[in-house]
Amino acid sequence: MAETQGPRLRTIIARNHRWDLIIGTIGLLATTVGVLVLMLLFVDLVIDGWQRLTPDFFLNFPSRRPEEAGILSAWVGSALVMVVTAFTAVPLGVAAAIYLEEYAPKNWITELIEINVTNLAAVPSIIYGLLALGLFVYILGLGHSILTAGLTLGLMILPIVIVATREALRAIPVAIREAAYALGATRWQVVSDHLVPYASGGIYTGVIIGLSRAIGETAPVITIGALTFIAFLPPIPFTGDPPAGPFDWLFSPFTVLPIQMFNWLSRPQTAFHVNAAATGIVIIVATLLMNGIAIWLRSRIRSKLKW
């Protein structure tokens, strides 16, 4: 039986192998396209914008003369907006995740919340801009401010924080929870003394990934009416006189890095495109750095924590 099939079988197998090799090679090429695009993108930006990355670029305000223009107001604005974003998304996201993972009963309200979280993750970011424009800017009267931008981006990255926190909580084995309950801990004690600390690595990872998305996000911030030409800095936080003083920075007009880049990119003069490229390098380095930290943190948790 084997003998009669032998030679014919071998040709068939050889043909199968050939196909396997072809498809495998195509797959490898496709995958490297991703890697190549990333490199190309980065190299292109660096070639275009490298010469503008001087200390002055970080310390100057935008200007009509491209060679004097800088990103001082933009990076300060980005930093302050990120503070508000983090303060919005982290408590809300972590609390929501704890509820969904540890408290929520199986009923239609929980189901509704779950569907909403997955859906929000896929809502286009510009829609968050429209929400903020209608709600925060006009109905709540918060204006075109740092606070509005921070809240908007905070809501936008909320699903990322929730999903990451839930995954981190889910990775903790039931045995740990039972051990704590067996010692007489209440549900909240189990959560606050055990689950949140043990899940903190995964939570940080999610928060960093969320913030890295927020820092590069342009569309919603444009929609709420961030100004593109800001030649002043917001008040230094927590320095003014109470009651309003310490927080007046929240209501300051502002710009952020991606908007500054967009503004320069929209100018016809190529000299401004160089500035845009330089700003792009700053943004991409910031996001890649944050993503890199998150990926590294996650792999470290995975290798360290083996339940």
Binding site: A2, L9, R10, I13, H17
Partner: peptide, 20 residues
């Protein structure tokens, strides 16, 4: 057998072995 091949030898194709 009856081929008398060592089927775990790297030269032998696992695909062929699995077909048989």
């Amino acid at each position: 057998y009856p081929d008398d091949v060592n089927l775990v030898s790297p030269e032998v194709d696992p695909i062929e072995i699995r077909m048989r």
